[in-house]
Design a protein around this nucleic acid. Structure first.
Length: 915
RNA sequence: GGGCUCAUAGCUCAGUUGGUUAGAGCGUCACAUUGACAUUGUGAAGGCCAGAGGUUCGAGUCCUCUUGGGCCCACCA
């Protein structure tokens, strides 16, 4: 006899089971021509990562799919790994250094990188250990890191190939610059957020008054213009006044009558006293601000365009750290925001500041440190994206790659169709160094090469220098689906290449919407460019985990629910099951730690149902073949019913999973296990099982034991992908062999056991039992008290069904005597209720609250009357009769009839009560 | 400015292609319980499906608009 505690204790179970899975190598997969592949590559978490609820949700989905497919007979591979996360990791190590009073420059590049590697060795696998706590069945032997030697080869190879195709170029452009991290960022890395700021109106004096004298003042439409003209200045509006130091023009719209006469005139830039021109360009919005815009080509992307177009001077007034440089003259070395304040003070003092208006603007923020981005003119490396986007757009449009839910396809296509070139150089040290070498002697050409060239091709000099910058981290992660399999190794004899051929394209990518652009889109482009094939066929985008108020969970908000704490408190299975159940397909999920009780309670319910089963099972019976038994023996109704319910459930479960409806799937299992299996089947089966665990069970109903065992065992298999630990623990108790549930096949649907007549009979029984319990509750009769029941039933078929289920009714509704009559022979003191065409009488003794009973029934009667009225009028409606499908009309008629019967019956009861 | 998404029970959400009297979990209330489980059982109460139009025999579901949340994109100085 297996002894199970009355509570499921995950702590006793999880680590031990996970270890046994690993010891038995159950997570590993390899190219296997006898099986179809199923493969997922994990979205590699940052090495600096610490497990959060988003990871938990993301990994749970992947593990469900991986375990499911493994059981379904696929060669199921989940490739794990981590991302070197250039900026984030460098920041972490720099912070650590700064505690020792050091900067990375103090160490120098090589020594600093050594420190980062040391850090990586020490802390880099934290997230991996945490994923294991989640039960993730990744093939850990394959764990990859984006800076692995092999992987780095792939990165260089990709760079060189794109270079050779002319898709990589270097250029001076305005890019997103983080003054704190001191590096360029891609557009995706600089998300715009609302900032409360001001619009500052500045006066720029006109050099000579000639251009504005007669006409401008004479024709001025607004008093403001007149005042402005009379004062001899133009007012410009800006949100970043400190950039005025770098202004090289003021632009107006050529159609703007206010300024027409001033075009071509010069202005004197305040504080700096530099002369700048007034230029005309269609780009200027006449309605915004004053219609005159200061142009700072080195500090604003729009102004940059204007600067190029009108041949303006590019004056960069800031250094890389966000402080003002020598071009800012008196403001040199001030931080940009400090300079803003001082400049405003000075402008105000000298009468150049007209007014300040509150103004909300959106500004780019560094996605690593949240510092406001500075649009900054600098020389960077870029990838031309348009040529790469083509095939990636096609593949999604024609359905070779499918997004789930579908709506993300639009988001993807919209971005893809407006794709901008990708800034890939970063001015940091931790990352893949750009594989470009310059000759310091002839300075003729830069060379891109996977191997460091020994001499310059042009002049043979050995005096070569590699580019200082490193590549964007995403420039390595976009290769993840194939670089993890050893690409670009081409030889087929190489085992890694065989794996690449076998597992690529991977099956599905599971990820969050935040990284569709960063990662998903770029992987698709890389897949086509370098493999000639899509990297995955399905993309499942799940929701974002939020706190109970709908805010994104973040450390700074302090609203984090730590998955590891939930695991500690409720168990991994509870965490997984709750997360999946609470997250409806593609929607965000709002969590509180209390919500995880859902999973814990469910786990405990399953545990106890299994405990009960084990106490009442003769495990020597388990080898019986269910199909044979089903065919040969006349099983009990309850047994046939639960089998039928199980296989119906299995069908809908499969459908839900095929469509990535994970919460439907978990709901289906929950409903079946808790309500059908525990609430009904176990209760129905009890009389046929051993009443006492101490006694031998062999003399009891063997068929029921077999069915109970089989249904439980198969249900555990279905639940295993969701709750891997508890199902394994129970399954091993049910199977005294040493195998694992992980390697069991997913149950096959047995259509012959789906038995609708049995289901109908059981649901009749269930309904009758519920009605009786309801009547008891209303009459304040304890549920345990035996009662006498009479069912009025005119239909012979139903009557015989009632006869067949009478023992269940007797047992579960505690009915002492149950009569089924076609009509009422004698009247006993009783209460009744209507169930379809049946009328159920419950004999009562003593006091009966006639008033409240009449009230209750009258309420029901009036609802019915309403319904009957509406049905009658619908059935009188010619349009309805003509246009509605015949089966709907027939259904309505039938319902009308049965409702009428019900009503008659109800009225009769009410009358009886009244007399 | 463009796009997406949400609004259904006190709370969190389901509700597939339109078709009985709109469901679940939690919470609330009443009752029960010595043999699987109080992390339980039985039952009850609780809804103008955000608002207004429209399509339809029929709308929570489809269309339009309005209101109010959330999110994403965009070169609004």
């Amino acid at each position: 006899m297996n002894e199970l505690s009355s509570r499921y204790n995950p702590k006793e179970v999880e680590d031990r089971i996970y270890q046994s899975w690993q010891d038995n190598n159950l997570f590993s997969a390899k190219a296997n021509p006898d099986k179809k592949p199923f493969c997922i590559v994990i979205p590699p978490p940052n090495v600096t990562g610490i497990l959060h609820m988003g990871h938990a949700l993301n990994s749970t989905y992947q593990d469900i799919l991986i375990r499911l497919k493994r059981m379904q007979g696929f060669e199921s591979l989940w490739v794990p790994g981590t991302d070197h996360a250039g900026i984030a990791t460098q920041n972490v190590v720099e912070r650590k250094l700064s505690k020792e009073g050091l900067k990375r420059q103090d160490l120098g590049r090589e020594e600093f990188l050594e420190k980062v590697w040391l850090w990586k060795e020490e802390y880099g696998s934290t997230i991996i250990h945490q994923l294991k706590k989640l039960g993730a069945s990744c093939d850990w032997q394959r764990a990859r890191f984006t800076m692995d030697e092999q992987y780095s080869e792939a990165v260089k190879e990709v760079f060189v190939r794109l270079w050779n195709k002319g898709l990589i170029y270097q250029d001076n452009k305005i890019i997103n610059w983080c003054p704190r991290c001191q590096t360029a960022l891609s557009d995706e890395e600089a998300p715009h957020r609302q900032v409360q700021g001001n619009l500052y109106y500045l006066r720029y004096p006109v050099k000579q008054a000639s251009g504005l004298k007669p006409q401008a003042s004479g024709q001025a439409k607004k008093t403001g213009d007149r005042r402005q003209a009379a004062g001899g200045y133009i007012v410009v509006a800006t949100t970043r006044p400190e950039t005025m130091l770098g202004d090289t023009a003021v632009a107006v719209n050529p159609k703007d009558r206010r300024y027409k006469k001033l075009i071509g005139e010069s202005l004197i830039l305040p504080l700096i006293n530099r002369e700048i021109k007034i230029i005309a360009d269609e780009m200027v919005d006449m309605k915004f601000g004053t219609g005159a815009v200061k142009v700072t080509p080195a500090h604003d992307p729009n102004d940059y365009v204007l600067g190029k177009k009108h041949n303006l001077e590019f004056i960069n007034v800031m250094s890389a750290d966000g402080r003002m440089n020598t071009f800012a003259r008196d403001y040199k070395d001030m931080d940009r925001f400090e300079a803003r304040e001082v400049i405003l003070e000075d402008l105000k003092e000298k009468g150049f500041l007209e007014k300040i208006q509150p103004h909300n603007l959106s500004a780019g923020h560094c996605y690593r440190c949240h510092t406001i981005i500075e649009p900054y003119l600098s020389r960077q490396w870029f990838v031309k994206m348009k040529p790469l986007a083509g095939p990636a757009i096609e593949a999604v449009k024609d359905g070779r790659i499918k997004f789930h839910p579908k709506r993300w396809m639009k988001v993807y296509l919209n971005w893809m169709e407006n794709i901008q070139d990708w800034c890939i150089s970063r001015q940091i040290w931790w990352g893949h160094r750009i594989p470009v070498w310059y000759c310091l002697d002839c300075k003729k050409e830069a060379v891109a090469s996977v191997e460091a060239p020994s001499v310059c091709r042009a002049c043979n000099s050995a005096n070569l220098k590699q580019d200082e910058d490193v590549l964007d981290t995403w420039f390595s992660s976009w290769l993840w689906p194939f670089a993890t399999f050893g690409w670009p190794t081409q030889e087929l004899t190489n085992p890694r290449t065989q794996e690449l051929n076998y597992f690529y394209p991977t099956s599905v990518l599971v990820t969050a919407p935040e990284i569709i652009f960063f990662w998903v889109a770029r992987m698709i482009m890389a897949g086509f460019e370098f493999m000639g094939k899509e990297p995955f066929r399905d993309v499942y985008i799940h929701g974002t985990v939020r706190d109970i108020e709908g805010k994104k969970m973040s450390k700074s908000l302090g609203n984090i629910i730590d998955p590891l704490e939930v695991i500690d408190q409720y168990g991994t299975d509870a965490l997984r099951f709750s997360l999946v159940s609470l997250t409806s397909a593609g929607q965000d999920v709002y969590l509180s730690s209390q919500k995880f009780e859902l999973g814990r309670n469910f786990a405990n319910k399953l545990w106890n149902a299994s405990r009960f089963s084990l106490m009442n099972l003769d495990l020597s019976l388990v080898n019986t073949d269910l199909c044979a038994l089903f065919a040969k023996e006349r099983l009990e109704l309850a047994d046939r019913w639960i089998l039928s319910r199980f296989y119906s459930m299995l069908g809908s479960l499969g459908k839900a999973l095929d469509n990535y409806r994970f919460n439907d799937a978990s709901g289906i299992l929950y409903e079946f296990i808790w309500h059908e299996f525990c609430d009904w089947y176990l209760e129905l089966a009890k009389p046929g099982l051993a009443p006492n665990p101490q006694s031998s069970v062999s003399g009891q109903n063997k068929n029921t034991q077999i069915v109970l065992y089989k249904v439980l065992e198969k249900t555990l298999r279905c639940l295993h992908p969701f709750m891997p630990f508890i199902t394994e623990e129970i399954w091993q108790k049910l199977n005294e062999s040493s195998g694992s549930i992980m390697t069991q096949p997913w149950p096959h649907i047995q259509k012959q056991m789906i038995d609708k007549p049995s289901e109908a009979k059981m649901s009749l029984a269930i309904n009758v039992i519920t009605v009786i319990r309801n009547l008891k509750s209303q009459m304040k009769i304890p549920q345990t008290q035996g009662v006498r029941v009479l069912i009025l039933c005119g239909d012979k078929k139903t009557a015989s069904a009632l006869d067949e289920v009478s023992k269940y009714i007797a047992h579960l509704a505690k009915v002492e005597s149950l009569g089924v009559r076609p009509e009422l022979a004698e009247r006993k003191k009783s209460v009744s209720a209507v169930l379809g065409k049946l009328r159920i009488f419950l004999e009562v003794e003593g006091l009966l609250d006639i008033e409240s009973e009449i009230g209750r029934l009258s309420k029901e009667a009036s609802a019915l009357t309403q319904d009957i009225k509406s049905k009658e009028s619908r059935l009188k409606n010619q349009a309805f009769l003509k246009k509605a499908p015949i089966e709907i009309v027939e259904k309505e008629k039938e319902l009308l009839l049965s409702n009428k019967e019900k009503l008659t019956s109800l009225r009769k009861t009410i009358d009886e009560l009244k007399t």
